[in-house]
Design a protein around this nucleic acid. Sequence first.
DNA 1: CGCGTTCTTGACTGCTTTCAAAGATGGTGG
DNA 2: CCACCATCTTTGAAAGCAGTCAAGAACGCG
Lengths: 242, 242
Amino acid sequence: MVSNPAPVPALAATHRLAALASLSDAELAALDMSARHLTRFAAYREIIGEGRAELAPSIIIDGWACRVRHFSDGRRQILGFLLPGELIGVRHHRDPLATTAIVALTQVALCPAPPATESEQGGLAEAYAVSAALEQFYLFRQIARLGRLSAYERLLDWLLETRERLALSGLTTADSFRLPVTQEGLADALGLTSVHVNRTIQLMRREELVELKGGVVRLIDPPRLAKLVDYRSGEVTAAPSA
Amino acid sequence: MVSNPAPVPALAATHRLAALASLSDAELAALDMSARHLTRFAAYREIIGEGRAELAPSIIIDGWACRVRHFSDGRRQILGFLLPGELIGVRHHRDPLATTAIVALTQVALCPAPPATESEQGGLAEAYAVSAALEQFYLFRQIARLGRLSAYERLLDWLLETRERLALSGLTTADSFRLPVTQEGLADALGLTSVHVNRTIQLMRREELVELKGGVVRLIDPPRLAKLVDYRSGEVTAAPSA
DNA sequence: CGCGTTCTTGACTGCTTTCAAAGATGGTGG
DNA sequence: CCACCATCTTTGAAAGCAGTCAAGAACGCG
């Protein structure tokens, strides 16, 4: 059994935001301060309902959540995952309504996102902005995944993306990471059935592309996997400022 | 790309932005002014390449474009359409790179988006913000469409969304609108093949849900169609400010 | 009027779903 | 410490939706 990449509170969020832009000491302190005011949600609890007034800007300190769309006939589609260190409740305009529900997939801890004062020299506002750009990037990738990839490719592509996102928050060790999502959860995200997700995983195991057991994934040779699905890193969303 | 000072009515753009927030006379004038500086792109020309420095914020004055992802093996996925009156090149942070290519589907005319000064009483900044929120909403819907709807449902759902979006820009008459996209284009957007799009359209014709000929669509009974796919309007992204 | 693009149609293949049920797995209480 | 239960994973067989390949018809443009 592989030991967990221990998610120490606030660490993931600080790790991620500091990776997106250089933060001042004051901003780092503000993050630490904010992380003391945690709001917790039990697994499977709804964090925000579709059509409700949007959540206050928040940072996921720990746990996995997802945006989800429920259809009237019971089908559901996970639109995207929300991982530790990522932001939710980012508002575009005044008095927004949540366009999608957000549901906790595990126990989730949220803290308020410290307000970023544009005028300062600190990079928190920039970090938030890059985070928003990344979120959009992930949406584009999810669309391409669902539209044009086979089940096999979708799963690989998603694993690579998730690894990259968790790495941003410092939650990967070597090529493995915790994956606290059931195969049914994966199915709802990848537009498949849980049965077929299971078959696909087993195929990938037999081909020694992936190890997956006890909620921990290990990708055997990420660069090779990336080639299989034409995977492109999201690291390059900003031009070098220098 | 050819700059052309020819005065083209900024009707669609003004219609849309004014619908998203109330604009001051100065802002309306700025829009008219801006619409005199058109940049034109021929059909199928690339407006911005993936990974290039992001386009300046612009408004689509006329024509259809799309965000597209090309795979190395030739597959392609249209991530979303960009319709007259909608914005492109909206930036989250400094020095962004375009995360997706944008390609003209018809001849396209672009104009610079007039800068919105936050401090004023005019609502242009708000209109831009709501526009961004809507764009995100459309991405979520595209994900749900590709992930959980059948070919039949995808097409219906997409037609309803497109009608709603074009209506925002004042480009629908009764229940019909221009659809300058080939069935192969639809296939690339809906994650299908053109053959199957064709068969689906014909099925819908036989069932008298839709008329489609000569690049013009007419939806027979939108409310009924909406029920068939659990379609939800995007009108309600903002809480009533009153 | 002619040619290229787009639309249509048919036959066949195959990926993914559906339905059903049998194994694991992990947490809980006795 | 183990039995027990709910949840999750795994497996099999059959059906179906959408893809592929191919070719003919219709359309629109020059």
